[in-house]
Write a protein that binds this DNA or RNA. Structure first.
Length: 291
DNA sequence: CGCCAGGGCTAGC
DNA sequence: GCTAGCCATGGC
């Protein structure tokens, strides 16, 4: 991998195992939009960039080498050997197919606060509406960032949101989840929960700590652990994952608990990667759905 | 009308 | 520790 800067762009050569569509549309993030030319534009860490791939070269527009080394190379998880991970997972015949389908998935290293709020909003919701609620929240409370002839909005920090009450969030139409957002803002702003400390905690302890926030249960906590804290031994089990596991491995009567046991026994510390390949595969192929 | 969506909370066992 | 009913919202 070689990175160099050229006219507000960073280009990275020698990229393997990376496909933008697979990575941005496998359900781990909500703020990347495909442009007409196939590139993607998104906001993360209060910065707007446009990314595109040509052959083995990744181009990141509207950035510089400094930000590349401090933010984007970690955000896109470019230093991890996904070939080795996929090779291990391929031993399972179902995962072999899922990996071939979503071969270019990389698990983004996202901001933990954005993850907490985004996945609280995600519970018992549908992806297009989750995206809209997050967009509306950012537009109202986030920091404006210019790119081209457009205004984008960074995801609001805990400080940006401090003091909001449930009534303030009614415009989001987030349903019963608005009070969970208020609770998360309070706990983080009042140092009731320390996000910095979570990174160095074992998975189970970090999960328990996250679940002290209202609206954060097992599944939401696992998404936060996987997508922002690099805890790869989790296996977030939602309706799609449960269906695909029932369909291929466990049968109709399998509970979420059964799925968790199966993943820890068979995937171990690669559970998070397996989950992403399976989720993308299941959702794109509508595995287990009647329509 | 009913069912469902990247579930969680609460009560009850 | 595990489950049933409930929960806002909106599309179908």
């Amino acid at each position: 991998m070689k990175a160099y800067e050229w006219e507000k762009k960073v280009m990275v050569e020698g990229i393997k195992d990376f496909n933008l569509k697979h990575t941005f549309e496998c359900g781990q993030c909500f703020r990347w939009k495909e442009e007409e030319d196939g590139s993607y534009t998104g906001v993360a860490f209060n910065r707007v960039v446009n990314v595109s791939m040509k052959e083995k070269t990744l181009t990141i527009k509207n950035t510089n080498l400094n930000d590349y080394h401090s933010i984007w190379k970690h955000y896109f998880d470019l230093e991890r050997d996904y070939s080795a991970i996929k090779q291990k997972l391929r031993k399972d015949p179902v995962l072999k197919e899922a990996v071939e389908f979503g071969w270019g998935i990389r698990i983004l290293q996202q901001d933990i606060w954005e993850c907490i709020i985004s996945f609280i909003i995600s519970s018992n919701n549908i992806i297009p509406r989750i995206k809209k609620i997050i967009e509306n929240l950012s537009e109202k409370y986030g920091q404006p960032v210019l790119f081209g002839d457009k205004v984008y909005y960074g995801f609001p920090s805990p400080k940006d949101l401090y003091g909001v009450i449930v009534e303030d969030l009614a415009f989001l139409k987030a349903g019963y989840r608005d009070k969970f957002i208020v609770d998360a803002v309070q706990k983080v702003c009042e140092n009731n929960i320390s996000l910095d400390r979570l990174r160095n905690m074992p998975t189970a302890d970090a999960r328990k700590e996250l679940m002290r926030i209202k609206g954060v249960g097992n599944k939401v906590a696992d998404c936060i652990l996987l997508f922002s804290l690099q805890k790869y031994d989790v296996f977030p089990t939602d309706v799609w994952i449960r269906r695909v596991m029932q369909h291929y491995y466990l049968g109709e009567d399998a509970t979420v608990y059964d799925v968790q046991k199966y993943s820890s026994r068979h995937y171990g510390n690669l559970g998070g990667f397996a989950q992403q390949y399976l989720f993308y595969y299941a959702r794109e192929r509508k595995i287990g759905r009647k329509d």
